[in-house]
Nucleic acid binder design. Structure first.
Lengths: 187, 187
DNA sequence: CGAGGAAACTTGACACTGTCAAGACGGCGG
DNA sequence: CCGCCGTCTTGACAGTGTCAAGTTTCCTCG
């Protein structure tokens, strides 16, 4: 199974190898050849399945958005609480750092990929739920924007190491404190 | 002055060339050799002044934090309004995208560089002003964290193209709307 | 059953990258 | 005028992504 010429599910294996490598090097330093070596295939094998380096990262990002959407749905379903969804967003960023770090870097992706956009839409829908009325045609819901900005900014600044040590030591508590002092007036 | 062997202020010229290039390619695709060519020097000249590719990006990020601190100070000085400082943060991200995009990518920088850390501290101080009491020793002020998260997340999501078109068309109005529905309870 | 063709993967090459060592150049103090 | 040191160049090296061509395997259809 492992040393066949036809791998079986090399696409899957490459994505997993990429996530591993991303955890060690970060998305901008990812090496396609290193991913291929990790999966035990030749250096040009990834290109066959993903076309591009950006194609591989797009596949990773797509899977990331799917997982994020799942996590947000689960949080909403089990608690019905708007803030719990936000906490789940932050948790996801911490637990799935390799995914999260590639999901919001359009310059490394194929941003127009249909699968990616579908997964993005699923995540957005899961996040917006509970933020009042959905936006009118072409418009936006300020409350939804505000909530997304808050949780996303918290996650980014946390991962980038811009917060004090105490935040990194107990991010959940820190986010709870942040959520406690923040009120969104649903209009 | 321009074609001397000793350039005069090559360091400065390289930073400016880097910012130009960053505006076109983004920080992860920046090529040192392209920067050198743009500045009209040999391909190894940047290494002499900055040691590293990360060193050059660190210099750019440092200058970015200085400029951000200036912008935040100015906003506070002229308005005395907490939300105006937030708006200035978002404006800075839009107007100085090449800087902003490199400032929060520690994996591309030398995060322990003393000059960088000084400039970061200046920005943080400018942002925290007006967010209630400064944090206790080793602790954090939840209101300051929340405000920073909100403006930073808004800026990141905007630049990454994750917001509806209407937001991109008039970001200032969108941020005003976001700030209007958000209340921070200073404790 | 066996031939043909498509799909999966490899091999080799190319231009480009960052980094390093060694050398050429230029201004400055003695 | 000499020597020296900081500034920059030249040349080389290993590693990168991508592309074209070749090889291997599987599947299907006669």
């Amino acid at each position: 199974m492992t040393d066949r010429y036809h791998h079986g599910d090399l696409r899957r294996a490459l994505i997993e190898a990429a996530v591993e490598a991303l955890g060690e090097t970060g998305p901008s330093a990812l090496s396609l050849r290193a991913v291929a070596k990790r999966a035990g295939v030749s250096h040009a094998a990834p290109a066959h399945h993903f076309g591009d380096k950006a194609g591989l990262l797009t596949a990773v990002a797509t899977e990331g958005f799917e997982r994020l959407a799942d996590a947000l749905d689960r949080a909403w379903r089990t608690t019905g609480d708007f803030y719990a969804v936000g906490a789940a967003y932050v948790r996801f960023a911490i637990d799935n750092r390799p995914y999260f770090e590639t999901m919001f870097r359009p310059e490394l992706l194929h941003p127009d990929d249909p699968d990616l956009q579908r997964a993005e839409a699923r995540s957005r829908a899961g996040l917006y739920r509970g933020a009042g009325d959905p936006p009118a045609d072409g418009g936006y819901n300020p409350t939804a924007l505000a909530a997304w900005s808050l949780v996303h900014g918290f996650a980014e600044l946390l991962l980038a190491g811009n917060f004090p040590q105490a935040v990194a030591d107990d991010p959940d508590a820190a986010f709870r404190a942040v959520a406690t002092v923040t009120r969104f007036e649903v209009e």
